[in-house]
Design a protein around this nucleic acid. Structure first.
Length: 207
DNA sequence: GATAAGATTAACT
DNA sequence: GTTAATCTTATCC
């Protein structure tokens, strides 16, 4: 049983999936044979009953992957220049998935740096389009099965001193109050994982 | 057919 | 904090 199989369960909601995906690891095997691994630290949940979701108005040529059974990638192009990647979840026929907003490199950081121009350190992967650039994820991986190379998802989990913080989502104009964004934070310091994007916005929800 | 907005980022003041 | 970059998709004549 590969890790992504839990995403295919028909009763898993995008919110459950978004929580469970925090701490899991994406393994990217590049065409040149090099490899990078990142740990997911920020996610957002979307589904077809959610006005902010691409799937709210039904299946289209753009979003059809979201309506497949879970465990594959939904990749979309936006603002004329950026790709973002979602991890599709739920049963076939129901459009739902999890946007991966940020991740921390745990292996092959030098290969990520090669692909991130001038950005260095946390700025290489602390945003949804930064991450796709860092891992060279584009339309060629549309609907790709995440249990197989060259982009795989494996189990991770949280450390003992970490917890999940939920907040409203970033950059949307509908359902703006819904707490469907999940980030990894530190128990004692209550600091967010340094790779979480939009730290300022999230901080206002730390009580 | 035209238009506006977009699950963003980097550069600049 | 503000703004340009850049193009696909959805929505509205």
């Amino acid at each position: 049983m590969t890790f992504p199989e839990f995403l295919r369960r028909s009763d898993i909601s995008s919110i459950e999936a978004a929580r469970k995906l925090l701490g899991s690891v994406l393994i990217r095997e590049f065409n040149d044979g090099t490899c990078a691994k990142v740990r997911i630290v920020e996610t957002e949940a979307y589904d077809q009953d959610d006005p902010a979701s691409h799937t709210f108005h039904g299946k289209s040529q753009r979003n059809w992957a979201m309506f497949e059974a879970g465990g594959i990638a939904y990749i979309y192009f936006t603002y004329g220049m950026h790709y973002c990647v979602n991890i599709v979840c739920g049963r076939e026929g129901y459009g739902s998935g999890v946007l991966v907003r940020a991740a921390e490199p745990i292996e092959g950081e030098e290969y990520i740096a090669q692909r991130r121009s001038k950005a260095r350190g946390v700025n290489m992967t602390n945003g949804p389009a930064k991450l796709t650039k860092a891992l060279e994820i584009d339309k060629s991986l549309y609907a790709h099965d995440l249990s197989t190379s060259p982009l795989r998802l494996v189990e991770g989990g949280l450390h003992d001193d970490e917890f999940v913080l939920e907040t409203p989502r970033i950059g949307i104009s509908k359902a703006v109050e819904d707490k469907r964004r999940f980030v990894i934070a530190h128990e004692k310091t209550r600091a967010l994982n340094p790779y979480v994007s939009e730290q300022r916005f999230t901080r206002t929800f730390l009580v």
